[in-house]
Amino acid sequence: MIGVAALALIIAIALMLVRALSGPTLYDRVLAVNSLGTKIILLLGVIGFLTGRPDFLDISILYALINFVATIAILKFFRYRSFQVSLTRRDRGGSQ
């Protein structure tokens, strides 16, 4: 049953790749890659249980962190065209 679950997750990843490759806007692609990351995290855990090596979970923790940082970094780069900008509202003269 775990094997079927891994297969379903692989199918979901393949379908999500279609959206990542065809997505009309940049944001669709980033969304697809982010969602792909979530599924890969789950797939890593499932593979760990399938092969009886739950050490795979360490990799999935790392993947969760890198996935988040990558999404934010891509969005920041396409918004400001640079990484050298503060993301907080302080520099925009807000009230925070």
Binding site: L15, D28, S35, V46
Partner: peptide, 30 residues
């Protein structure tokens, strides 16, 4: 069984991402 249900929900969410018409609605499916 719970892992399988979770994987099936992942497929359903992906189908929603493929079907929905614009970016904001796809966000909900994801």
């Amino acid at each position: 069984a719970l892992v399988l249900v979770g994987a099936v929900l992942a497929v359903i969410g992906t189908v929603g991402v493929l079907r929905f018409p614009d970016f904001y609605t796809r966000l909900h499916a994801a």
